[in-house]
Computed example of a mutant assay.
Amino acid sequence: MVKSGSRTSAEPRVSPFRLAAHLTSVFVIYNGIFWTALSVVMPEPPAESVAWLKGAAKVKRLALPVSILVGITGVSGAFVAGNDAGRAFNTFPKMGDTWVPADIFSMKPLLRNFFENTSIAQLDHRVLGTTTLAAIGGLWFSTQKLDLHPAIRSLIGSIVGMAALQRLALPVSILVGITVPVSLGTAHQDGVLTLLSLMLLLNHTVRRPSVSLLKTLPPVVKIVT
Rank of each mutant, 00 (worst) to 15 (best):
T186V: 15
W52S: 07
T143S: 15
I68C: 02
A37S: 09
E116G: 01
T130N: 02
I178P: 00
V182H: 04
V40Y: 06
L133V: 11
T179V: 14
T24D: 05
L111E: 09
G5P: 04
G96F: 12
R87N: 03
L128W: 01
Q189H: 07
V172Q: 07
K145A: 12
L110V: 13
L165T: 06
V180C: 00
R61C: 00
T194C: 05
L69N: 09
L53R: 08
V180R: 05
D97Q: 03
A102H: 03
M199H: 08
T131W: 06
G137W: 11
L196S: 12
K58C: 11
V80F: 06
Q166F: 08
G32E: 06
F92V: 14
M1F: 06
L213K: 07
D147A: 14
P109M: 10
D147N: 11
N117P: 12
P93F: 08
G96W: 10
L175C: 04
L133I: 07
W140E: 02
L168H: 00
F92C: 07
I120H: 01
S210F: 06
G138S: 13
R112A: 10
N117V: 12
S154N: 12
R126H: 00
P16R: 06
L196F: 11
M1T: 09
V41M: 12
L175I: 13
P219Q: 14
A85S: 15
H22N: 04
A57K: 08
W99Q: 04
V160L: 13
L38M: 13
G71N: 13
G185T: 05
P46C: 06
R208D: 06
L214N: 05
R207I: 11
G5C: 12
D103C: 04
A121N: 14
N90R: 14
L19D: 03
L64M: 12
T131A: 15
L128E: 00
A88F: 03
D147K: 12
T130C: 08
P109I: 10
V80T: 02
W35G: 03
G137T: 14
M162T: 15
K145P: 00
P46G: 01
L213Q: 03
P45L: 04
S25C: 11
L155Y: 00
Q144L: 15
T73C: 05
P45M: 05
L128A: 02
F89D: 07
S49A: 11
F114L: 14
L193F: 14
V224W: 14
L195I: 14
I156N: 00
P43I: 13
M107T: 03
S25P: 01
T73M: 02
L165I: 10
